[in-house]
C-alpha cells in the first residue's frame, strides 16, 4: 500500500494486467508516442503520460501507436478482441467518439447479441472525460450517458485512484466491451492504493459518506464536489449520504434506492449535460421505484444545456460546484 496518483494507479493497473495476461495489448494514438519520429520511441505515453513506460516494458508487438484513425483502430480492436486478444484501445478524448461511433455502438455493442452469443468481445476503451482544462467543447464533455444508452456496453467512471486501478482490472478481465472514462482533472489526485492487483466488481456503488438526511448521488469528479458540500452541510447538522455509482452500466440502482428509502431526499450531481443523462435516469428510476419514500422533489445539479466554453470564467460557470449542491440540499431540506 502506498499513495499513488490516479495516473500512477491506472498505469500500474495496466502494467499488472499486461503481465498477468499476455493477450492484453494497448492500441491508440500516441499511447507510446514518437513512433517513427527519430527521437525517443516512448516519448509521451499518451498526452497525459498515463501509458508512459509501457512500450519499453512490453515492446511494439503489445503497445501499438496508431495513425489518427479512430474508426480503423477501434474496428481493429474489436476484431482483435473477437479473436481472443484483450485490447485496451485508447480513445484519447471521449469527444472523439464521433469518428468511431459506428465501431463502438454498432459493432462492439451488438457483436455478441446480433450474432446469437457466438462471441466474446473483451475490449476496454480507455477515454478521457470532463471539463476544467479550458480546452473547449470538443475536448471536455462527459459522454458516459451516451455510452450508457447502448445495451452491450459496460461503462465505468472511477472517481479516484483506488477505484481506477481496481475497476480497470475488472474492465480488462471482463469479456464484454467496457468504456473506461478517466476524468482528466483527477490525474493528480492522490490516494492509498494497494501495490498488489485487485479487481472491483462492476455494479457496486460506493457509499463515500454515510448520512441520514439527504442522499447525494455523484458521478466521477462530482463525487469530490458532493463531498465538499457534504462536509460543509455537516456543520449545519445536515447529514448527507454520498453515493458514487462507480459504473453507469451496470448501474447499482439497488444501493441508491436503499439509501433514498432511508433519507427520503435525493440530489444528483453530474457533470454531464442536463438532458438524457445519468442524472435524469437515476431520477426516473427513483421516482418509479421509491416515490413513496421521497419527502421532497428530486433535484439534479448539472451544467446548463450548452456546449462547453474555453474561457476560464465561463467554464467555471459550466461545472457544478459545491455551492450549487448546498443550495440543492437546502431546497430538499426545506431550508431555502
Amino acid at each position: 500500500m502506498s499513495k499513488k496518483t490516479y495516473r500512477q494507479a491506472i498505469n500500474e493497473g495496466l502494467v499488472q494486467e499486461m503481465h498477468r495476461d499476455p493477450s492484453v495489448i494497448l492500441i491508440g494514438e500516441d499511447v507510446a508516442g514518437g513512433a517513427g519520429a527519430g527521437g525517443d520511441v516512448d516519448a509521451w505515453g499518451g498526452p497525459m503520460a498515463v501509458t508512459k513506460g509501457l512500450l519499453s516494458e512490453f515492446g511494439p508487438k503489445r503497445v501499438l501507436d496508431t495513425p489518427i484513425s479512430e474508426a480503423a483502430y477501434m474496428g481493429l480492436a474489436i476484431g482483435a478482441a473477437a479473436s481472443g486478444l484483450r485490447p485496451v484501445a485508447d480513445l484519447m478524448f471521449n469527444d472523439f467518439i464521433g469518428v468511431c461511433f459506428d465501431q463502438i455502438v454498432n459493432q462492439a455493442a451488438k457483436y455478441r447479441y446480433m450474432y446469437g452469443g457466438q462471441d466474446r468481445i473483451p475490449l476496454t476503451v480507455r477515454t478521457m472525460i470532463g471539463a476544467g482544462l479550458g480546452i473547449s467543447s470538443q475536448h471536455s464533455q462527459c459522454l458516459y450517458p451516451v455510452f450508457s444508452y447502448f445495451a452491450g456496453l459496460k461503462v465505468v467512471i472511477p472517481s479516484g485512484p483506488y477505484d481506477a486501478k481496481g475497476l480497470l482490472a475488472s474492465a480488462i478481465r471482463d469479456d464484454d466491451p467496457v468504456i473506461f472514462c478517466e476524468h482528466k482533472m483527477l490525474y493528480e489526485m492522490v490516494e492509498e492504493v494497494p501495490d498488489e492487483p485487485y479487481a472491483i466488481p462492476f455494479g457496486e456503488a460506493k457509499f463515500v459518506r454515510e448520512g441520514e438526511d439527504v442522499t447525494i448521488v455523484a458521478l466521477s469528479r462530482m463525487v469530490h464536489i458532493a463531498m465538499e458540500a457534504a462536509e460543509s452541510l455537516a456543520k449545519e447538522g445536515i447529514g448527507c449520504e454520498v453515493i458514487d455509482p462507480r459504473t453507469t452500466t451496470p448501474l447499482d440502482t439497488e444501493s441508491i434506492i436503499e439509501s433514498v428509502e432511508e433519507t427520503g431526499r435525493l440530489v444528483i450531481v453530474d457533470e454531464a449535460g442536463p438532458r438524457c443523462g445519468m442524472a435524469s435516469e437515476i431520477a426516473a428510476v427513483v421516482a418509479e421505484e421509491a416515490f413513496s419514500a421521497l419527502n421532497a422533489p428530486i433535484i439534479k445539479v448539472t451544467p446548463p444545456y450548452t456546449p462547453i466554453p474555453a474561457a476560464p470564467n465561463l467554464e467555471k460557470l459550466y461545472i457544478p460546484d459545491a455551492g450549487q449542491v448546498i443550495t440543492a440540499v437546502h431546497k430538499v431540506m426545506g431550508r431555502e
Binding site: L76, G84, Q107, Y111
Partner: peptide
C-alpha cells in the same frame, strides 16, 4: 460479421489479422 455498417469489415479484419499474427 456480415455487417450492415458497410466498410467496417476491413477494420474488423485488420483486428483478426493482427491477432493471427500475434498468436
Amino acid at each position: 460479421g456480415a455487417n450492415s455498417g458497410v466498410g467496417s469489415g476491413v477494420a474488423l479484419g485488420c483486428g483478426a489479422a493482427l491477432a493471427a499474427r500475434n498468436n
